[in-house]
Design a binder for these strands. Structure first.
Lengths: 113, 113
DNA sequence: CCGTATCCTAGCGGATACTG
DNA sequence: CAGTATCCGCTAGGATACGG
């Protein structure tokens, strides 16, 4: 059953961290090259981008495809497992949005009082 | 709009970390005293328990009730916002379980090949 | 029983410079 | 263009001891 040991932790390990969610979000719309991702994921450094992608690759969430050509070209895409993560990410983001809204409302209330 | 800026990060900030999910899980079944929680959440240190509870309290997820008596008694319970988190945690844990199963199957496959 | 303070460590996340 | 190496600060998480 659910919550035996710590499946929650397993999931958080995979999608946790500062950038992975964002990367997965962008990959959901199709394969992306490294440089494309770096433009899409605002403010990410190359190190964190590559590092995150490596971890996601090892976890079986993204797939890395190399084209042997000059200049080099590499594309990242979601695996089936990666796509299965999308609804979860959306749910999390929705809650985050709802939560942020609530904070704002509460502030307004306390100002009115 | 979903995924504007980083609502995902907001959510992960609240439920992320090693213990918060577990704590919230146990609180879902009703208010708990500090010492009860420490027994339920296996291996958590007192520091991390209190620290996690404080953060959840500041985020409006749990409510802390003190009873003025000797010996002191404190109870923690979920707020409405806290309860709204439960389906999300379940989804995350389900995915974690599915993911773990998949890992096992893949290992078996690669052994058969 | 409940909570705080202190000290310590590993790793995340980041800036920068460098290879092929 | 893609990726690696190095150096560094910060903080999450943990062990332990103490106070009300």
């Amino acid at each position: 059953m659910i919550f035996c040991y710590n499946q929650l932790e397993v999931c958080l390990k995979v999608i946790g961290g500062k950038w992975k969610g964002l990367i997965l979000y962008h990959l959901h719309f199709g394969p992306k090259r490294t440089s494309e991702l770096q433009k899409l994921v605002i403010n990410i450094t190359q190190k964190m981008l590559i590092q995150s992608l490596r971890e996601l690759e090892n976890d079986g969430i993204v797939k890395r495809t190399t084209y042997n050509q000059v200049p080099p070209k590499v594309e990242y895409s979601l695996t089936e497992l990666g796509f299965s993560l999308h609804p979860i990410l959306v749910t999390l983001a929705e809650w985050g949005g709802m939560y942020s809204d609530q904070l704002i409302n509460n502030e307004e209330e306390s100002q009115n009082v």
